[in-house]
Amino acid sequence: MPGRARILLWSAVIALLILLPPVAEALKQTFYIDLLRRVMIFAIAAASLNLILGYGGMISFGHAAYLGIGAYAVGILAFHGVDSGWMQWGTAIAASAVVAAVIGAVSIRTSGIYFIMITLAFTQMLYYLGMSLEVYGRDDGMRIKTHSQFWGLIDLADPVSFYYLVLALMLASLYLVHRLANSRFGMVLRAAKSNEARSRAIGFSPYLYRLAAFVIAGALCGLAGALLANHTAYISPDFMHWTRSGEIMFMVILGGIATTAGPLFGAFTLLVLETLLAGWTEHWQVYLGPLLILSVIFFRRGLAGILPGARDA
């Protein structure tokens, strides 16, 4: 059984992530705290996409929409003087869920290429909406002057406190998706992905289950958006650009679709590679592309597929 390997793997991952801030501070390399925090925020976004793409077979090419909605919810409320993190994050999650419900209700009736195009089209609409919001900086975006406030319980302006909060939320998100995927609910999603005709013949109507998964994924990605706004202290329509959707999708695939740890591995690898290559050459994208293609060819089940303990179903 993969039980022991899995415990070992997760213990190592969690220990490394906990130890990173003190080590980075001791070595005066606080940049890495920032980088890993970003990685973990994107791991949440990727985990949410993994629920619908990996387990549900719904290839949403517009997942950055919820990242943007979550970030704009924080930015807009902060702009109007609402600093309460409870309000901001609650709004981020709720607004993302509502938009996901609308997009999902339309798109889930389709499949294949139509599904991809509809989810992309909706996100482009939101992107252009962001580009046209005069008050909130249009295409320039805008700075967020104060971090989300949580009654003084935690200070997000402190990079290390914020890091540990993100770590906790990321682990909770990965665990949440893991539980969902293995529940009765998740089995319906996975079964419908595997063979929809069979599902219908034994009495499942997949639509509502898919829609529910779509809304949960949107809400979770909205949380990632709220975190991202605090991380960058800045919002811009670029958060919703289609290349961002593609990046999140790539994290899922690279990490290993329909695996618990995949989104974290994918986000880590993509963002760290990006950073390393960008420090080495300004044409880093030229090198990143082929690397990614090779990795998909050789690790067909993603990075989680080559690590014992991460290869869960």
């Binding site: 539980r179 969902l180 529940s183 009765r184 609910f185 998740g186 089995m187 034994i202």
Partner: peptide
């Protein structure tokens, strides 16, 4: 088990692992 589940009420049960039920 999936066929059994399809006829065991709704499947909006989000937490308990289905495989061990």
């Amino acid at each position: 088990a999936l066929a059994v589940q399809a006829h065991a009420g709704h499947s909006f049960r989000f937490w308990k692992p289905a495989r061990s039920e």
